[in-house]
Nucleic acid binder design. Structure first.
Length: 263
DNA sequence: AGGACGCCCTGTTCGC
DNA sequence: TGCGAACAGGGCGTCC
C-alpha cells in the first residue's frame, strides 16, 4: 500500500497535473480524515490559491499552497490521488476534492478512510512534531548504522518504525530484507558489518527501482519479491517456496532458504 | 523499549 | 451460488 515509492509517485503525479491552477472549490467527503481542521478552515486556506510545489518525507506528502502554508496528506493504506481534466470526470465520492477554476480537479481518494489531511506552516516542523525519523531514501550505510545503535528487537520491525526511519512499510520491508538475504526476525543488535552493507545497498536499490517502476509491482525487476509476494509462491532467486510469519502484527513473506534464520 | 494485540475502516477474498 | 468471516495493512493506543 502507500509506502515511500507510492507516495513519491503520487508526488510526481501531482507535480505533473495539478500545480499553478487556482482552486475554486474544496469538498471534504470524509470528515474523520481532517486533523485540527474543519472543512471551512481548509476551504478558506485553499480558496483562490494555487498549489505551488510538493515535498515528501517518508509516507507524507506536503503540498505548498500559494501565499500560505502546506497541505499535508497521508494515504493510510488505501489512499491515492486522481486528477481529472474536467469536472464530470472527477469522482463523486472522493474523500477530498479540489476543483480548479479551469474545470479540472484533483481527488484524494482513501476508500478505507485511514489516511490523514492536515495543515502545516512548515514541513520540517511537522515532521519533527510527528516524531518521524529520517526519510529512508536519504539514509546511507553510516546513517543506518547510527540509527541501529542501541536498537533492540527485530530488523523488520525496525525498518517499519516511522520514528526511526520514515517511509518503509510492510511490503517494502519484506522486499528489502529479501534482497539483502536477511531473516525478518533477525535481531538488529546481531547484524554484522557485511549485513549492514548489504542492507543499506538493498534499501536504496529497492526504493529507487520501485520509484522507477512507479510503485507498480508488475513493472518491477524479475528479481523482486513484490510481484508474487505470497506464501507458497516460488522464490525468484532460488526457486524454493516462500513462507510467511507474523511480525509486529503484519504478515512477513520471506524465503527460508535465501534468508536463513541466524542461530 | 519493543512487541503483542485490538481498533479504525471497507473492498476483496476465503471457506463452508 | 451465497453469505458471513477473515483478511489486507498504516498508525495509534494500551498493556506487559
Amino acid at each position: 500500500m502507500p509506502e515511500l515509492p507510492d507516495v513519491e509517485s503520487y508526488k510526481r503525479y501531482l507535480d505533473a497535473t495539478s500545480l499553478h491552477q487556482p482552486i475554486e472549490a474544496v469538498h471534504v467527503g470524509a470528515l474523520r480524515l481532517l486533523r485540527d481542521l474543519t472543512p471551512q478552515s481548509l476551504g478558506r486556506r485553499l480558496h483562490g490559491k494555487a498549489l505551488e510545489s510538493t515535498r515528501r518525507h517518508g509516507k507524507y506528502l506536503f503540498v505548498r499552497v500559494e501565499d500560505g502554508g502546506w497541505l499535508v496528506l497521508h494515504f493510510g493504506m488505501s489512499g491515492r490521488l486522481r486528477y481529472a481534466g474536467s469536472a464530470d470526470a472527477l469522482p463523486r465520492d472522493g474523500e477530498m476534492l479540489l476543483r480548479f477554476e479551469n474545470g479540472a480537479g484533483l481527488a484524494y481518494l482513501a476508500p478505507r478512510k485511514l489516511g490523514r489531511i492536515a495543515w502545516a506552516d512548515d514541513p520540517a516542523d511537522y515532521v519533527a512534531s510527528q516524531g518521524l525519523g529520517a526519510d529512508a531514501l536519504e539514509l546511507d550505510e553510516a546513517g543506518l548504522r547510527a540509527l541501529a545503535k542501541g536498537r533492540r528487537g527485530g530488523v523488520k520491525s525496525w525498518l517499519m518504525d516511522q520514528d526511526s526511519l520514515a517511509g518503509i512499510g510492510n511490503l517494502y520491508s519484506d522486499e528489502i530484507l529479501f534482497q539483502a538475504g536477511i531473516h525478518p526476525r533477525q535481531a538488529v543488535a546481531a547484524l554484522d558489518d557485511a549485513q549492514f552493507r548489504t542492507l543499506a545497498r538493498s534499501l536504496g536499490q529497492v526504493l529507487r527501482e520501485a520509484i522507477e517502476a512507479q510503485a507498480d509491482p508488475g513493472a518491477m525487476p524479475r528479481s523482486f519479491l513484490l510481484p508474487r509476494r505470497e506464501a507458497g509462491a516460488d522464490c525468484p532467486r532460488c526457486g524454493g517456496r516462500l513462507d510467511e510469519l507474523r511480525v509486529a502484527g503484519r504478515t512477513a513473506v520471506f524465503c527460508p532458504n535465501c534468508q536463513p534464520e541466524a542461530s
